[in-house]
């Protein structure tokens, strides 16, 4: 393989361009591929839980039905609405970043962060209610008066699935706070907004997982 041309040195005018990329476009595309690959790993991580859930629900359909009656359907629906709206505000934040509107970017990021906080707040209320009633995972299950065995398995899945999802919401909040700080500092522009874009993708995936968790856990008929 022959032929060559001299290395083009990057000017100092692009402070966020890493040395091994030619331009911000290439860098953004690479990071987007990286982000989607990461999202796929998240899908398969939760996917394992969904497969386990599916098999166990098939084996213990009565117990899963009885277990879900202990969940508060209206709180679950409320949280679904909260997360969907937060996805909307996140999409708006990405749009504001792309159009270079810093004020609206800050506004929508703050709104997304607030909705995420509401989601975790509602989750806290739900969890403490379950703790109080002894509806705990596996061997810590203390609830008396079930008509079928296996309700503990339902709550194992409830806590593992919503717990892992909650950790992802928390991680999302950390990422959005970081974006907020950078947005206030004025890092982002119409040419450089990849971190907002990527965090947005992550946040929508967290929303998407909840879209499945809601009917699977709260709406068993």
């Amino acid at each position: 393989m022959s032929g060559s041309h001299t290395v083009v040195e990057h000017g100092a005018q692009e402070p966020f361009l890493q040395h091994h990329f030619h331009d911000l476009g290439q860098q953004a595309e690479a990071s987007k591929i990286g982000m989607w690959l990461f999202l796929v790993t998240e899908i398969l991580l939760f996917g394992g839980l969904f497969v386990g859930y599916g098999i166990m629900r098939m084996l213990h359909s009565q117990a899963f039905h009885e277990g879900h009656l202990h969940l508060d359907r209206s709180l679950g629906a409320l949280n679904t609405v909260v997360l969907l709206v937060s996805s909307f505000t996140m999409a708006m934040a990405v749009h504001s970043a792309r159009t270079g509107n810093r004020q609206r970017l800050i506004l929508f990021l703050a709104a997304t962060l607030a909705f995420a906080g509401v989601f975790l707040g509602v989750k806290y209320v739900e969890y403490s209610h379950k703790f109080h009633d002894g509806l705990l995972p596996g061997r810590f299950y203390r609830h008396a008066g079930d008509s079928v065995p296996g309700v503990a398995v339902f709550f194992s899945f409830y806590f593992v699935m919503t717990g892992l999802h909650g950790l992802h919401v928390l991680a999302g909040m950390v990422a959005i706070s970081w974006l907020l700080r950078r947005a206030v500092r004025g890092d982002f522009s119409a040419t450089y907004y990849a971190p907002v874009d990527l965090t947005g993708l992550y946040w929508h995936l967290v929303d998407m997982i909840w879209i499945y968790l809601f009917p699977l856990l709260y709406l068993i008929s």
């Binding site: 790993t41 998240e42 899908i43 398969l44 991580l45 939760f46 996917g47 394992g48 839980l49 386990g52 995972p137 596996g138 061997r139 810590f140 503990a152 398995v153 194992s156 899945f157 806590f159 593992v160």
Partner: peptide
């Protein structure tokens, strides 16, 4: 990722008796 969730569930199984 599936290995991740497998060992995580095994860990949970040992700690919480997930079942």
């Amino acid at each position: 990722p599936v290995l991740g969730i497998t060992v995580l569930l095994l860990f949970m199984e040992r700690v919480f008796g997930v079942g």
